[in-house]
Design a protein around this nucleic acid. Structure first.
Length: 321
DNA sequence: GCATGTCAAGTTGTG
DNA sequence: CACAACTTGACATGC
């Protein structure tokens, strides 16, 4: 069974995640900072509950949780721990309830730390900040029951093989709760599937295959071959594969490839229709894009086994099981 | 009220 | 050399 996933935000549903700038927060005294940040975290924890409910309601099977769910958590000056927040205990409780919810609905949750989190840098301060960020995200992942924390290879620094050596060294040293959730993803200018496959194999971590990045930054593998290889990396670990797709806003001729509002269904690799996997949909129209693609591909709405067997009128009856 | 410029962080490629 | 591109919106500020 194929499930499509929504990334971080909603276009139409009135669910918003709040944020704060460090510049503003720094102007407050510590108590003021914790009060403000606590308010944001509480709202965001509640918004996450609403998000999982909404994703379920829409028949979507996966949700990527945005990294700044707890705003500025790892900031060097205004960072904090949940216990320090006025409503820290309540926030923890709400986040734990997300885990129960996602299990009931069989929604898969994941994290995708942004471009500042990378383990190949020769600069120790960059690596230290990245490790701190991973500590934060795994704390959240454990609380809410997310099984994937997906990062890119990072920079090349003029020498890919030594950058990858540093990456291997860092990942090997990660504590198990992080390592067991960590995945690598091919990116659109530096690391291809071909580059990362041996690294993932060596580290026993899976490879998230982004087909759009593969098209921007190709290697000698075809889409079918890359699909198969990445599938294997998950199956070896007895885990559901996790892929990404997006469509370019301005077609394939322009240099930069910003994401389009929707996915062009012709960009969806045919071979993906046959597999058991999670496909994160990276499109600006958010849940509208997921639903549109789901419809165009004739996928049934995602619903938990044993949950409301009522609304099962989606035409196709022989592709099941 | 509402428009608008500004956000912590790294790295690469473009213009 | 500065700026955009990467999940891209939300917020504080100033009219």
């Amino acid at each position: 069974m194929l499930r499509l996933g929504l990334c971080c935000l909603f276009k139409e549903a009135p669910i918003r995640f709040r944020s704060a700038t460090a510049k503003y927060v720094k102007k407050l005294d510590r108590a003021g900072q914790l009060a403000r940040l606590g308010e944001l975290c509480l709202d965001n924890a509640l918004a996450l509950v609403a998000a999982v409910e909404e994703v379920h309601r829409l028949g979507i099977g996966a949700f990527r949780v945005s990294s700044p769910l707890l705003p500025l958590y790892t900031h060097p000056e205004v960072g904090y721990r949940l216990e320090e927040l006025p409503s820290g205990e309540e926030i923890t409780k709400i986040l734990s309830s997300v885990k129960a919810l996602k299990e009931r609905y069989q929604i898969r949750l994941s994290f995708h730390p942004d471009q500042f989190t990378l383990l190949s840098s020769p600069r120790p301060e960059v690596t230290a900040a990245s490790l701190k960020e991973l500590d934060y995200q795994v704390m959240l992942a454990v609380l809410i029951g997310a099984d994937v924390i997906n990062i890119h290879g990072g920079g090349v620094y003029g020498d890919k093989s030594s950058a990858l050596l540093r990456l291997v060294e860092q990942v090997s040293a990660l504590p198990d709760p992080i390592r067991s959730r960590l995945s690598l993803e091919n990116d659109d200018h530096s690391y291809t599937v071909r580059d990362l496959l041996p690294v993932c194999e060596k580290l026993s971590i899976p490879l998230v295959y982004d087909v759009h990045h593969h098209r921007c930054n190709p290697d000698d593998l075809t889409i079918s071959e890359a699909t198969e290889a990445c599938m294997q990396s998950w199956r070896q670990l007895e885990r559901e594969p996790h892929f990404h797709i997006s469509s370019p806003k301005f077609g394939w001729q322009g240099k930069p490839k910003p994401h389009a509002d929707f996915i062009d269904k012709d960009d969806f690799p045919e071979e993906w229709l046959q597999i058991d996997a999670t496909i994160d949909i990276e499109a600006k129209a958010k849940e509208l894009a997921v639903l549109k693609l789901q419809k165009e591909l004739a996928l049934p709405p995602w619903c938990a086994a044993g949950d409301s067997p009522v609304q099962r009128h989606s035409a196709k009856s022989e592709s099941g099981s």
